[in-house]
Amino acid sequence: MAVLSEEQSMLRDAARSWVQEKSPVTAFRKMRDSGVDVGYDADAWNEMAEMGWAGVIIPEEYGGSNFGYLSMGLILEETGRTLTASPLLASGLAAASALVLGGSDEQKSEWLPKIADGSVVATLAIDEGPHHRPEKVEARFEGGKITGRKTFVLEGMAANLLVVSAKGPDGIGLYLVRADDGGVKRQRLQLADSRGAANIELNGAAAEPLSGGFELVEKVLDRARAGVAAEMLGAATQAFETTLDYLKTRVQFGQVIGSFQALQHRAAKMFTDLELSRSAVEAALTAIDNDAPDVAELASLAKAKMGDTFHLVSNEMVQMHGGIGMTDAHDAGFYLKRARAAEAAFGNQAYHRDRYARLQGY
């Protein structure tokens, strides 16, 4: 594990206490059954914002705490444990990163304080097809307006501010679009993991450019990839611990099933993969905080490794729980569905293995 400061340890412990008390998996189940359009509980999100979580990576002069990405990762890990649905990843990390890295002083002053206090939900609108391909962009920015289409936009129904990738005079870059602009049309998507997402059409929507071009796009995406990997780490860890508890208590053929060597081997495989994944995730977040030159490689490594691990652990959770694991009454299905959706977010394992190889010169 990364060596945490006293402030980071306190932040992690506070996040753990809050999600266990205020946002257990039963709260996620209740939100899912309610059918709320935005895909999260607004009251819970307001509490998260009041605790300062939405401003963790935002500089103090704009209403944040500037605690850094490892600190944000610790919070996301804890929310991942209980499958807490919120705009924290999309707004407090991804979109906030775009403004911090590429926004003008005026843009930062206008939007970052509102993102930090939760009064504005912002999100990235990058992909235009079924797969993550940020370099393939057809949306165009001309004359101060954007025309194009974006797919699978996380928190797309709740967002007040869209950070949109589009082709401009100098190539692909990021642009700010107000979601209430008359040129913005949204279509709600119903994803397997019951989170909020939308397809968005931009028909001459007014836009403001951020500075940085495609380099900014990649920097922001790497931060989002490390963040979602941290959330996946929390979910996979909880899925493993829940399964391990079951192995220690479930009796079959007169024996606790955890005494069966075949199941012990499978549990050991999950444990070692989780430890390796934790190292990869924490390395990526620390590299971002240190502005290291290998952030891109480490972000892809973390996302690819965490995708494989969460896929394995969520499968094993269902299989080792047997018949009950196949039912909606048990939480195992929630973790499996979240694994599949999170794997695809900001690039799946195949995308990141290929990207890592290319970054290494292969």
Rank of each mutant, 00 (worst) to 15 (best):
L276Y: 14
A2L: 09
G52E: 03
F240Y: 14
P87Y: 03
W53R: 07
E231C: 12
L221Q: 10
E6D: 13
H330Q: 05
G102E: 02
Q20D: 12
K269T: 13
A15S: 06
A2F: 07
D308A: 12
L233C: 04
L176T: 01
S300G: 11
Q187W: 09
F253L: 12
L11E: 13
G361E: 04
Y246H: 02
G129L: 15
R225T: 06
R358N: 09
L189K: 06
H265R: 08
Q261D: 15
V100A: 05
A14Q: 13
A235I: 03
G333N: 13
V56R: 01
P113W: 00
A42S: 12
T327N: 03
A236E: 09
S119P: 03
A296N: 05
L336P: 04
A357L: 11
A280R: 02
A357H: 10
A94S: 12
A122D: 09
A350I: 08
R29G: 11
A14G: 10
K114Q: 04
R353K: 13
D41S: 12
S104F: 03
Q238R: 13
L174T: 08
K114A: 09
L191I: 10
M48T: 10
G323P: 05
T249M: 08
A345W: 15
G63P: 06
V36N: 03
D43R: 13
P169W: 07
L70G: 00
